[in-house]
């Protein structure tokens, strides 16, 4: 049986399979369907300094092979997370990573500093790519300079593994990835959702309360794969790939394109035990092709 252990900076993962922020709650939501401790990591819901109510309903639209969401970072704030959620999840048996969001550099820094004090959170994923909040969020992630300023500021306040989540809504994603690397990120994850829109023709109205929303699911996979491939060539830090992964073959494709680990998002909604199947499927792939270690297929795309 092949070795699935992998590393993101100094963060050790049992296997390269994580669940994506905003699609897996705090993990416990899925405990009836699978053994969540088998995951390489669980990335919990986007957390901000202060409580956020999120956007009004409707927040979701199904699109061909995908979906749009406009949740808008609804969460109860970092203090609530520390007092009420962290105690329940800290002993879940796998890495818990907090997705940190904000609307100003100060917000990001303060939230990251609070998370820095939590012993059982070995990493944060800095979300500079949420398309669903008016100020901030994606605004930081679409320009190299603003990305660099928020990442360097957080780097000073946070001393564990710092993953930066990149937006696909840019002209050249490698430029932002390089800015993240130069500003001290230990890893980059990509992609966050792609800005999209749905219209109800009968009612002549937008489907989402926010008009536009973030697209995810199988429909975005080719774009995500391309970006992961480009970024993996452009930076030396490990890349975490996501976007439309629904099965082990999809996951292997991202690893071949250069991702050191992958995340599963929308697919959790369709099959709540899919991530366990992806872990088993990657192992089966490695065995079938005679690989002894998952590292052998990372970036092993032959062109």
């Amino acid at each position: 049986m092949a070795n699935l252990k992998t590393k993101i900076g100094s963060l050790e993962l049992k296997n390269p399979v994580m669940t994506a922020s905003g699609t897996f709650g705090y993990g416990s939501e899925y405990a009836d369907f699978m053994d969540i401790s088998r995951l390489g990591a669980i990335i919990v819901k986007g957390t901000t300094l202060k409580r956020r109510e999120g956007n009004p309903y409707p927040r979701m639209a199904e699109t061909p092979s995908g979906m749009l969401n406009a949740v808008g970072l609804q969460n109860k704030g970092v203090d609530y997370f520390v007092d009420h959620i962290y105690p329940d999840i800290k002993d879940i048996g796998t890495n818990i990573i907090v997705n940190v969001s904000g609307s100003s550099i100060e917000d990001y820094v303060q939230t990251a500093s609070v998370i820095n004090t939590l012993d059982c959170i070995p990493a944060i994923e800095l979300n500079i790519s949420c398309p669903n909040v008016k100020q901030g969020g994606m605004a930081f992630g679409v320009k190299a300079e603003s990305a660099a300023s928020v990442i360097s500021a957080v780097r000073k306040a946070y001393d564990k593994t710092l993953i930066v989540k990149l937006s696909p809504n840019v002209t050249d994603i490698t430029e932002i990835a390089r800015a993240a690397e130069d500003s001290g990120a230990d890893s980059v994850s990509l992609i966050n959702t792609m800005l999209g829109m749905a219209i109800d023709a009968e009612r002549r109205r937008p489907v989402l309360s926010t008009v536009t929303g973030g697209m995810s699911g199988p429909a975005v996979k080719p774009v995500a794969l391309r970006m992961v491939w480009q970024v993996a060539k452009a930076v030396k830090i490990p890349v975490i790939g996501l976007g439309g992964i629904c099965c082990a073959t999809d996951a292997v494709e991202f690893l071949l394109a250069g991702a050191s680990a992958i995340q599963i998002g929308t697919a959790n909604f369709i099959d709540p035990s899919v991530s366990e199947k992806v872990i088993d499927g990657i192992e089966e792939y490695l065995d079938r092709h005679g690989f002894k270690d998952v590292s052998e297929i990372i970036g092993a795309l032959e062109i």
Binding site: G22, G25, E29, M60, A61, N69, V71, N268
Partner: peptide
């Protein structure tokens, strides 16, 4: 309208 049905995605508020 729901996506996950189990309280994980916050789409159905």
């Amino acid at each position: 309208k729901m996506a996950c049905g189990i309280g994980a995605c916050l789409c159905c508020v």
